[in-house]
Design a binder for these strands. Structure first.
Lengths: 129, 129
DNA sequence: ATAAGCCTTCCTGCAACTGGAAGGTCAAGG
DNA sequence: CCTTGACCTTCCAGTTGCAGGAAGGCTTAT
């Protein structure tokens, strides 16, 4: 399988796959012509990576998760810890965004949005000045 | 006011203030010794920027908002449009994160987290393999 | 022979800073 | 007068996770 095919099958851009190889996340054996030649195992790993990334795991987390995935003697506790930490980061991010959303939606509602210069949004940003 | 004082008063790191000057977001007049010397107006602008950034506005948005802030003849509609677009981006981000949160919390709950290798999280990422 | 459609590497850029090195300036203390 | 320490300066590199594009090689079909 060349990179194009693996790209469509894994649902990842070729650029991303090359990048993953570059940072040592996956291996990509070469043909004599220099082309990358992927097998089923690498496709599987790339699909794994795609899902993990879609769940927001960092590359560092992905590396750890992939290692655990390959390790038949792993402890599920190690996987769970990573997932929990990530979940905590997500929760925190949502909380931050919600705070912004609250403030902003209030301001947007309060703003007339017409031709006049008076604007509660700018008033708020400027410190009620 | 030197950069240190303006930094504490605006609540922004000195590095950030230098960066804002570098990208032309603010001006920073110099003393004869080369030190930046800020006046009340610049402090005010930096505070404005700090609040806008805290609400998640991009630097590009901040630049536009700051211009509108300074423009006495602005239309509040222009401000509102920027804020609404940003709000939409925030809504979308929250939706994304919530989807991740949903999936992940389910997986985390399902994972025993003990010494055994069996793990629903890895099973899911690996495509039920 | 040539054109299209793959593939390769390498370099740059994005957002918004942060950290650190190397060095100038200033006020206080001995 | 000298030193110490806290400021300040510029410049360069790194962060995250790729994307865009140039310059060129391989393959297949016409």
């Amino acid at each position: 399988m060349n990179i194009g095919e693996v790209s469509t099958r894994a649902g990842l851009p070729a650029k991303t796959i090359r990048y993953y190889e570059e940072i040592g996340l996956i291996a990509a054996p070469r043909d004599t012509n220099g082309y990358r030649n992927f097998g089923a195992a690498e496709l599987h790993k790339l699909t794994f990576l795609g899902r993990a990334r879609a769940l927001g795991f960092s590359i560092a987390d992905c590396r750890a998760l992939l290692a655990l995935y390959e390790d038949q003697g792993r402890a599920s506790a190690d996987v769970k810890r990573i997932a929990q930490q990530h979940l905590a980061r997500i929760d925190a991010k949502i909380a931050d965004l919600r705070a912004m959303q609250d403030t902003l939606s209030g301001l947007v509602t309060a703003c007339a949005g017409d031709h006049r210069p008076d604007c509660p949004i700018l008033r708020d940003l400027g410190g009620t000045a």
